[in-house]
Design a protein around this nucleic acid. Sequence first.
DNA 1: TCTTGAATTTAGCCCTGGCTAATAATCCTA
DNA 2: TAGGATTATTAGCCAGGGCTAAATTCAAGA
Lengths: 228, 228
Amino acid sequence: MNDLAENRSPSSSVGDYLKAVWELAVDSGSAASTKSVATRLSVSPASVTNMFARLQEMGLVRYERYRGATLTERGRKEALRLVRRHRLIETFLLEHLGYDWQEVHDEAERLEHAVSDGFTGRLAELLGHPDHDPHGDPIPSAEGTLEVDDSFTLSQAVAGQRLRISKVRDEDAAMLDYLGERNLVPGRWLSVREVRTLDGVVIVGDEEAEVHALGEPLARSIFVRNDS
Amino acid sequence: MNDLAENRSPSSSVGDYLKAVWELAVDSGSAASTKSVATRLSVSPASVTNMFARLQEMGLVRYERYRGATLTERGRKEALRLVRRHRLIETFLLEHLGYDWQEVHDEAERLEHAVSDGFTGRLAELLGHPDHDPHGDPIPSAEGTLEVDDSFTLSQAVAGQRLRISKVRDEDAAMLDYLGERNLVPGRWLSVREVRTLDGVVIVGDEEAEVHALGEPLARSIFVRNDS
DNA sequence: TCTTGAATTTAGCCCTGGCTAATAATCCTA
DNA sequence: TAGGATTATTAGCCAGGGCTAAATTCAAGA
């Protein structure tokens, strides 16, 4: 029994769960809850419980009933492998196939499960080994290391700061669309005019002296950094 | 019941069966037998019987017990869609990612199930709408039409003929390897010196006046045409 | 026509990964 | 600290796609 437990490349479902746990851990710091993963993957909580148990069997997560799951080292490696593929593919779709900003996510989501490491390597080469994808997210190295991220959202900025957009959330196509049109993309500089605690609106000026009033959801989708 | 019977994009397994039936029909002219499909997909005959019944349900094949399956119009369309993807992807891997002749098949086999029609279209554009893949196989149009093929294998050639290689079988990497090294690739001209019925060996001369003695398996893997 | 071996199908089972409904923990708040 | 509300888990079910073993059909030669 358990003959093949150790070395098979995970199914695409397993990969999706690992990525979800990884992403949730990144911006919560703690274990991924059943519900959060269920929501993210549009799946019932019961399915998540079930999968957590199986991932544990496979040695990909540590899981404690009622307490959520965290990735093991192997799980993290696997998740990063997928993230790397995803971000490289997004870059390719945008730069070589003429996709728009908003379209790349879904296509990459499917492709990342189908490509081999060999493909990934050659793609990275074709693209000139980029270290960030089009949304500004860092691309993990083939060895599984990832740049530390000291960026924060515009909501957390302070009036008067001069900041550079480091990345934007890539989950909502409509927002990407809006931001893309106004050229609020990674690399651009912003000066923060006002951060209104009252309603969460952030007012910024951009490089062309355009002024943008951004509601809380948008402000939370734009990540910035002090310099670099 | 049968709520979703009509418009869902087939799973990758279903696609593999459709392609197998299509390929077998192409070079046998008649219905695909359970065994032939089982062999081609490395699957048990029982699984094939099972799938034939389901494909019939889905309206993708006509199936009669003990008699094999043939594609319906819808099944053929679907199969050609996959073939088109497969051949475009192979072309891309070779031309843009530096893959070798022998490597492209397996990678394409996985990718063809993950890409969208949109991707396929843009890829075709990037490649300049090629009409043949690197092995010489014609690429079906987006509308599902396919060039008629009047080529035949070297085994069926006659001494004295001057022929052009139209395509080579892409299933066996070792053979592709061998042929690639000797530059016996689509587009090259050959003159047939001898076709020995005794042992199936075919002797040909190529454009550089090199002479090749090809055993039956190799001779059957090389397709040629009179002119064009 | 009968026999027999190959091809096929049937029966019954397995695993993955979904789901709902019912039950149990946990947490938060009065 | 005791409920409720929320979150998780369990139990039991389903469909897709595999498999093996046993039974059946077909076809071909004696």
